[in-house]
């Protein structure tokens, strides 16, 4: 562990100790540090702003309840990712069972993805393409979506994803590749 990482872990532990001691400002600091990250995961995992808000509240409530149990074995950020992913898993697994039929109907309505080199308004189209990919993401199986979001949206390393998701490195590699490949195929199907 580098000196910087050790310092970060020490700071995290102090923050947790303050929270455990009942210092309300400690949790405010946790919220300020991680609200963007939590909302981003919730939004990309759920694909729905309203649900992402709900999920974010649940995630922070879990963090509030369990923060005292943080042992400092990984960084607080990794720990927050893990809580967020677990919360999304349990909530979205319930939802996906309910909404499978609806998604099946939506399957046929894939947007056309423009190529990056298409015309002078490439920038705008790239943004549109990104949003299209975002929507296609919602149709991925949860395990693939999770791996792809953690890698391509959050920028975590393969090792960090393995820690957060609680799976082996080989599984992470496979899920990222299969998730990306499914998105690629869906988008190609949509653009043809």
């Amino acid at each position: 562990m580098t000196a910087l990482a050790a310092e970060a872990v020490r700071h995290d532990r102090e923050l947790v100790a303050r929270h455990a001691y009942g210092d309300p400002e400690a949790f405010d600091e946790v919220y300020a540090r991680f609200s963007g990250l939590v909302f981003q995961i919730a939004r990309r995992m759920s694909g729905d702003d309203a649900l992402a808000e709900d999920l974010s509240q649940e995630i922070f409530l879990r963090i509030f309840r369990h923060l005292r149990g943080y042992q400092g074995r990984s960084s607080l950020k990794t720990w927050v990712y893990r809580v967020a992913i677990n919360c999304c898993r349990s909530r979205l697994a319930r939802r996906s069972r309910r909404e499978r039929a609806f998604v099946a109907v939506e399957e046929g309505r894939l947007e056309r993805v423009p190529s990056a080199a298409e015309g002078p308004q490439g920038r705008l189209r790239r943004r549109e393409a990104a949003e299209t990919v975002g929507r296609a993401l919602n149709r991925l199986p949860l395990a693939f979506r999770e791996a792809v979001v953690l890698r391509d949206v959050c920028g975590l390393s393969y090792e960090e994803i393995a820690t957060v998701a609680g799976v082996r490195l080989g599984t992470v590699r496979s899920r990222i590749a299969r998730g990306r490949d499914r998105l690629r195929l869906e988008l190609e199907r949509g653009s043809s």
Binding site: Q57, A130, V133, G134
Partner: peptide, 19 residues
């Protein structure tokens, strides 16, 4: 292209009332 598009997804700030 998929990776690039995912990376370009707009990072939306959490709504102000969420806090």
């Amino acid at each position: 292209r998929v990776r690039g598009s995912l990376g370009r997804l707009a990072e939306t700030a959490p709504p102000a009332h969420l806090g």
